[in-house]
Amino acid sequence: MEIENVVENVAFKLLKLAVIHLPEDVKQALEKAYTEETSETGKTQLKAILDNIECAEKYQTPICQDTGTIIFYVKAGAEAKHLEKIEGALIKATRRATVEVPLRPNAVNPFTQKNSGDNTGRLIPWINWEIEPTDEIELTVLPKGGGAENTCVMGMLVPGEGIRGVKKFVVDAVMNAGAKPCPPNILGVGIGGGSDIAMKIAKKALLRPLNNENPNPEIAKLEKEILEAVNMTGIGPMGLGGKTTVLSISIDYAYRHPASYPAAVAFNCWAARRATARISADGTVEYLTHRVDEVI
């Protein structure tokens, strides 16, 4: 089969998998939160979330009606053939998934307010490219819901305050977001680089599985410290009160300009959807985030 057909099929399956089946690590974190939540209203919300996840799998329908803005991450092997055809294949897959899964049409022209109806439009789906020294193609889809996107923040902090400034920035972001991003949330935090870089790495940090500890022990400690702090707010599931406001924090960083200290917080809702697959040079496909029996 031609590479563009393989990519299109895999991307279609990834979109379908992502919006119907939450990754195991997210489900486990939500189940743990349900067991540990002490607020009655908070527990009701988590119960509804868990029931809904089960229904999505049973009826093969999207977990949430907001199937997000479609974002792809592509690791393109430098030795892989016909990389120029990937973009077209991803657009085709998005259009097909919109009709067949179905996905909600979520691409709107910001000037005319017209919805394109097929989840595509200028620069959408957004594709992040990375080149790797292989002959494989790794595709990840991150359907990003609007509610949690609306509470993402970027700030140019004071370099003199260092990491203390970041801690305050994240706590304030969670407080200001309140109920809006569908808590319990997953946070990606990007530190350094520049204004765009901080948000880019914050969003990419959302792809890290919740049960994978940060390989840098100092940062792992910082993630834990901020996680405990934001869960003291009492905002709770859906902002109705409780001790589970954030499930996990994932921090990444880049070196910064001496005069700048950019920091960004990317919010993901509890329906933290993502799916990844690797396509080998011979066309074989391996799904990395989901079990084989979930792939239809």
Binding site: R164, M175, E225, T233, G234, G239, G241
Partner: peptide
């Protein structure tokens, strides 16, 4: 307004949170 009550409580907790983080 339940949400405003939760938000008010969160504001009250802020001091404790800042203290915990050494801010």
């Amino acid at each position: 307004n339940l949400f405003m009550n939760v938000q008010r409580k969160a504001e009250e907790n802020k001091k404790r949170i800042y203290q915990k983080l050494g801010l």
